[in-house]
Amino acid sequence: MTGQLAVGTCEIVTLDRDSSQPRRTIARQTARCACRRGQIAGTTRAKPACVDVRVVKSKQWCEMIPCSEGEICGLLMNKSGWTCTQPGGRIKTITVS
């Protein structure tokens, strides 16, 4: 780990990509965050960010605005994550572990 983070910021610690399956890339990312009281590590605009702990506890993932500009967020049926649909129809699926 590196030095101290400024309060309210996050950094990516590891990023692993697996492109072994055709037309599919699986990426696993680990981030570390220094969040304020009432916040927890999450995702905003496709980057690690501190988000309201209520969003994570309720699994209302789209409330943290996790997708990039122009993408549409959709909650997975079992609330295990979300999808980001791009204007051309390409879909990114993100699951929380």
Rank of each mutant, 00 (worst) to 15 (best):
Ala41Ser: 07
Gly38Ser: 02
Ala46Lys: 06
Val7Ile: 14
Pro87Phe: 06
Val96Ile: 10
Ala6Glu: 07
Arg17Leu: 11
Gly88Ser: 09
Ser68Glu: 13
Val51Cys: 02
Gly38His: 01
Ile65Met: 15
Thr44Ile: 00
Ser68Cys: 09
Cys73Lys: 13
Gln29Pro: 00
Gln39Gly: 03
Ala49Tyr: 04
Thr43Gln: 04
Thr43Glu: 04
Asp16Trp: 08
Gln21Phe: 05
Arg17Phe: 07
Ser97Ile: 03
Arg32His: 01
Gly42Leu: 00
Ser68Met: 13
Gln86Pro: 07
Pro87Arg: 07
Cys67Pro: 15
Val56His: 12
Ala27Trp: 05
Cys73Trp: 11
Cys35Lys: 01
Asp52Gly: 01
Ala6Ser: 14
Val56Pro: 11
Lys92Cys: 13
Thr85Ser: 14
Val96Tyr: 04
Glu11Ser: 09
Ala34Gln: 02
Gly81Thr: 09
Ala41Cys: 03
Glu63Trp: 08
Thr25Asn: 14
Ile12Tyr: 01
Trp61Leu: 12
Gln4Ser: 11
Ile65Pro: 02
Cys73Asn: 12
Arg32Pro: 00
Met64Ala: 04
Gly42Gln: 00
Glu11Phe: 01
Ser58Gly: 10
Val55Phe: 06
Trp82Val: 06
Glu71Asp: 15
Thr44Ser: 05
Cys35Asn: 02
Val96Asp: 03
Arg45Glu: 13
Pro48Thr: 05
Ala46Gln: 08
Thr44Asn: 04
Gly38Arg: 00
Pro66Arg: 13
Thr30Val: 07
Asp18Val: 11
Leu76Met: 02
Thr43Ile: 04
Glu63Ile: 05
Ala41Arg: 00
Gly88Ala: 09
Trp61Tyr: 13
Gln86Lys: 15
Leu5Tyr: 01
Ala27Ile: 07
Thr85Cys: 08
Ala49Cys: 12
Ile26Met: 08
Val53Trp: 05
Met77Arg: 12
Val96Met: 05
Glu69Val: 12
Thr43Ser: 07
Glu63Val: 05
Arg17Tyr: 08
Gly89Ser: 10
Ser19Asn: 06
Ile72Asn: 14
Ala6Arg: 06
Gly38Thr: 03
Ala41Gln: 00
Arg37Ala: 10
Thr30Asp: 13
Val55Lys: 11
Cys35His: 02
Lys57Val: 15
Thr25Met: 14
Leu15Glu: 04
Cys62Tyr: 10
Glu63Ser: 10
Pro66Asp: 11
Ile40Phe: 00
Pro66Asn: 13
Lys92His: 14
